[in-house]
């Protein structure tokens, strides 16, 4: 009796989960479907579910029209430097905020944290003017350099929370053994917090990979475009060519999905472990 009720409840639960899964996945299918059709099929009424014939040439066409390979390399370049900078600078700052005592530390941290609620729109224009004053428009500096300065309060916050959970005796013992603070940071804290660092890395990857406004504002030369901007300009050129647009979108999405599947174990577990709380 109880068992029956439980299995009925589970059935409903699974149906519900399946429904949400469909909601999450169907757009991907529609994307893929449309990317494999020719324009006439796409505009067929009523819409058809399976491309026939499968038109792989959309991909070759989309890839030859704009230098997506070049955009990919540009994006990778930016992303790699951004992740490196963010992981290093946010972790070392977080280490200081979590485990070293210095005057006004918590006040300073509070101020940093408050910058999380600052709309980027406020700083967009002066930051832009600042970079242009430095002659850095149409370079990657504006997209990369900020990452080397803490990489945003969110990451520092996330790592600090994590570092605070490590027992303080570890550092003290190391200090007594004659280790310096940097050694503690690099030899004890960093290895212990690998999952959290991976989370920061992946968040940074996604943010940087998906960044739209930054490259839109700072990059001028087509040769320096990132994938996100490349896709947007592709839309500008091929407004109604849905088959090519969808193929190009798929190309842009794919690397992020692959990276996620490679790192997803650490990613989701990592966030769970950090125990993010307000």
């Amino acid at each position: 009796m109880n068992g029956n009720r439980r299995s009925l409840r589970n059935l409903i639960l699974y149906l519900f989960l399946a429904a949400i899964s469909i909601f999450c996945l169907l757009p991907f299918y529609w994307l893929l479907r449309s990317s494999l059709m020719d324009l006439v099929q796409i505009f067929e009424m009523p819409p058809i579910w399976f491309p026939k014939p499968v038109k792989l040439s959309n991909y070759t066409e989309a890839l030859t029209i704009l230098p997506f390979g070049r955009y990919f390399l540009n994006t990778v370049f930016i992303v790699v430097l951004t992740i490196t900078g963010t992981v290093l600078s946010s972790s070392i700052s977080a280490y200081s905020f979590a485990r070293l005592k210095w005057p006004y530390r918590n006040l300073v941290f509070g101020i940093l944290l408050s910058s999380m609620m600052l709309p980027y729109a406020v700083t967009l224009i002066p930051t832009y003017l600042g970079w242009s004053f430095l002659g850095a428009i149409d370079t990657y500096y504006p997209l990369i350099v900020p990452a080397w300065f803490g990489g945003g309060a969110f990451n520092v916050f996330l790592l600090r929370q994590f570092y605070m959970t490590i027992p303080g005796e570890l550092d003290e013992a190391a200090l007594i053994d004659g280790a310096g603070y940097f050694t503690i940071y690099s030899k004890i804290i960093m290895p212990l917090t690998r999952p959290a660092l991976i989370v920061v890395g992946l968040f940074t990857f996604l943010n940087s990979w998906n960044d739209f406004l930054g490259p839109l504002v700072y990059l001028n030369s087509e040769i320096k475009y990132t994938l996100a901007i490349g896709l947007e300009s592709f839309k500008g050129l091929y407004n109604a060519q849905w088959h090519l647009l969808m193929a190009a979108s798929t190309v842009v999405i794919l690397p992020a999905v692959i990276i996620f599947f490679t790192g997803q174990k650490y990613f989701i577990e990592g966030i769970a472990m950090t125990g993010l709380k307000g």
């Binding site: 600078s89 946010s90 070392i92 700052s93 977080a94 280490y95 200081s96 905020f97 070293l100 005592k101 210095w102 005057p103 530390r105 300073v108 101020i111 940093l112 910058s115 600052l118 406020v122 700083t123 224009i125 002066p126 930051t127 003017l129 600042g130 900020p146 080397w148 300065f149 803490g150 990489g151 309060a153 520092v156 603070y181 940097f182 940071y185």
Partner: peptide, 29 residues
């Protein structure tokens, strides 16, 4: 003393980042 010094030093990327990319642009804005 060393802890204070190193503490500030280690936190400096985030603090500098805040000043350069948040605080100054905000005032400029």
């Amino acid at each position: 003393k060393q802890e204070v010094l190193i503490g500030v030093l280690f936190a400096s990327p985030a603090i500098l980042g805040f000043f350069i990319f948040i605080f100054i642009p905000m005032i400029a804005s």
